[in-house]
Structure formats: structure tokens, C-alpha cells
């Protein structure tokens, strides 16, 4: 069985993609656990899957489209009620340009 080794840099790269901060103490265990699971998963590499189509959906139906008919939108006070930070009429976030 091949040994998948996920290194520190790879863990940090993936964490960055996932917008997940990892403390220094979390990096090494994460690398180790991911490697162990990926090692197990790597077994599917042994199967011959030439010409096997991928399955995204187990049910194949068509026509699941919606008519272009308006529904009632939510009142703004309801929309903003659960937000951690609000300013006036919208959701407040640190500026992406900052």
C-alpha cells in the first residue's frame, strides 16, 4: 500500500483554500490524520475503472426546472436579524480592499 504523506506546506495550502486558520499545534496532527485517511482511500486506486462513467446523481430525472414566477421575498429586518454585524441596510464586513 502506498503511503500518502501530506506535509506541512500542503496542509497550510489546503487550509488557506478552505479559509481555515490552524494553530501551530494543529498542523502536525492534521497532516498525520489526513495522511492516514488518504492512505485508506488510496485503495480505490487499485481498481480498474477504465470506461466507467462517473456518478454525480443516483437519480436521473429531468425537467426539474422552476417556472419564472415571483415569490415573496423576506422582510429586511428578518434578513438582517441573524447577522453578526449590520450597518444600516446591509451586512457589515471588513473591506476586501483593506
Amino acid at each position: 500500500m502506498r503511503c500518502t504523506v501530506i506535509g506541512r506546506d500542503e496542509v497550510l495550502h489546503v487550509a488557506r483554500l478552505a479559509r481555515l486558520a490552524l494553530s501551530e499545534a494543529e498542523i502536525e496532527p492534521m497532516a498525520r490524520e489526513l495522511s492516514a485517511v488518504l492512505d485508506h482511500i488510496a485503495r480505490i486506486g487499485e481498481l480498474d475503472l477504465t470506461d466507467v462513467p462517473p456518478t454525480s446523481h443516483v437519480v436521473e430525472v429531468s425537467g426539474a426546472l422552476r417556472l419564472d414566477e415571483p415569490c415573496v421575498s423576506l422582510p429586511r429586518e428578518v434578513v438582517l436579524a441573524q447577522a453578526p454585524a449590520v450597518s444600516g441596510e446591509g451586512f457589515l464586513v471588513p473591506s476586501p480592499q483593506a
Partner: peptide, 21 residues
């Protein structure tokens, strides 16, 4: 739509934006 509100909508002294969905 993101509306940059600069210093008027500061978050802890930093620039902020308001999101309108």
C-alpha cells in the same frame, strides 16, 4: 453588491463594506 463604506462604516478602526444581496 459590495458597497465600500470606508471610514464611515469602520470595523474596529478599519475600512468596511456593506453587502446588499
Amino acid at each position: 453588491k459590495l458597497i465600500h463604506v470606508g471610514s464611515s462604516g469602520r470595523i474596529h478602526g478599519s475600512d468596511a463594506s456593506i453587502v446588499d444581496f
